[in-house]
């Protein structure tokens, strides 16, 4: 078992390397995925807002607010879209999806703004809101609110999947390493046992299988036996080994 000491550093080194790789990928994933998902979220919201704005022109001009409400009700069924509201050019709320009422923060905001804005609505959650003008703003503005909690959840899910895969690879790698170490240590221990017996018996030792091996362990065993004055060295070492005596 003392042979295992030779591999402790190796195992530790490999394990540390794995951990470093996983941690690095984890941090990189979080950064990349969150950045890309956030960009995609805002982009999708903007597209949805633009679609609603485009589809709303005739409806608004026909004063058909029921159809307008029906339109936004369909969009709000899309996952992660939490609210939509349409404000006229005079700031009047023409259609919205809020229950039980329009939040104070939204009532107090500038309805003509279309840049992405982060909102924290009490009782509702955290949102990223984007807007799109209807008929260049002269007919009003559409605002779409995306739930950042579901965005965070998506990021967690995406990163989690990567980490999950890496952890599986790491566990398999460590188990493989242990198996390799064990497989490598076993003939060394046999060699050690043989050499100890050789030393203890003044050059006499029973062959525990190491002498018949065709690898470096076998060579080492035969060299040891030769050094102890028994047998000949392995053929490939004969030229380099000075005959005893």
């Amino acid at each position: 078992m003392r042979v295992h000491k030779l591999f402790r550093r190796l195992r530790f080194g490999v394990f540390a390397l794995f951990a470093l790789v996983v941690l690095s990928i984890f941090l990189l994933s979080i950064r990349t995925v969150s950045s890309e998902l956030e960009t995609e979220y805002v982009s999708n919201s903007a597209n949805i807002a633009r679609n609603i704005a485009d589809a709303s022109v005739d409806i608004l001009l026909n004063r058909n607010l029921a159809t307008l409400q029906s339109l936004i009700d369909q969009f709000v069924e899309i996952e992660s879209i939490r609210y939509i509201y349409i404000v006229s050019d005079t700031g009047e709320f023409l259609a919205h999806t809020f229950v039980p009422g329009i939040p104070e923060e939204i009532l107090a905001s500038d309805p003509s703004l279309t840049d992405p804005v982060e909102r924290s609505l009490p009782g509702l959650g955290e949102f990223v809101e984007v807007g799109s003008p209807i008929l260049s703003g002269v007919a009003g503005t559409v605002h779409v609110g995306m739930d950042t909690e579901s965005l965070a959840l998506k990021i967690q899910r995406a990163v989690g999947q990567q980490i999950y895969l890496l952890c599986i690879i790491m566990v398999v790698g460590v188990l493989a390493l242990v198996w390799i170490v064990k497989a490598t240590a076993k003939p060394l221990e046999e060699l050690l046992t043989y050499v100890v017996e050789l030393a203890r018996n003044g050059g006499e030792a029973s062959d525990n299988g190491v002498l018949t091996r065709r690898d470096e362990i076998g060579d080492m065993a035969r060299l040891m036996r030769h050094a102890a004055g028994q047998g000949s060295p392995p053929p490939k070492w004969r030229a380099r080994v000075k005959p005893p005596g």
Binding site: R63, L65, A66, L68, Q69, S70, D73, T97, F98, V99
Partner: peptide, 11 residues
Amino acid sequence: QNDAYGRSGWA
């Protein structure tokens, strides 16, 4: 009711 019906009456 926050749908087309409610909006119709609201309007």
